[in-house]
């Protein structure tokens, strides 16, 4: 799936936005990743730092800055969710 990676609005995190409409399956993601916060709208997982996952597909990497690693993890999230 295609997505764009850029600094978030206030510049301290990295944001990933899908370029097509997405509706993530949190049930599947919860089986795959270590979950820190579990709500029907937002999931926060631990994978090389915290990642905020919105059910409409936007991701926010709070700590990880390496865009190559971010691309790999984002691919894994979209593939499994």
């Amino acid at each position: 799936m295609k997505f764009k990676i850029e600094k978030c609005k206030n510049k301290d995190g990295i944001s990933v936005k899908p370029l097509t409409k997405v509706n993530l399956n949190f049930k599947k993601l919860k089986q795959r990743f270590e979950v820190k916060v579990d709500t029907p709208i937002i999931l926060i997982i631990n994978k090389e730092g915290e990642i905020i996952i919105h059910n409409y597909g936007d991701l926010l990497f709070k700590e990880l800055k390496n865009k190559d690693k971010i691309k790999v993890i984002a691919d894994e999230i979209y593939k499994n969710g």
């Binding site: 978030c8 301290d12 905020i52 919105h54 926010l60 709070k62």
Partner: peptide
């Protein structure tokens, strides 16, 4: 200064 703004905001 850089920060992460609140991600709890609905779309």
């Amino acid at each position: 200064e850089a920060a992460i703004c609140c991600n709890a905001v609905p779309r």
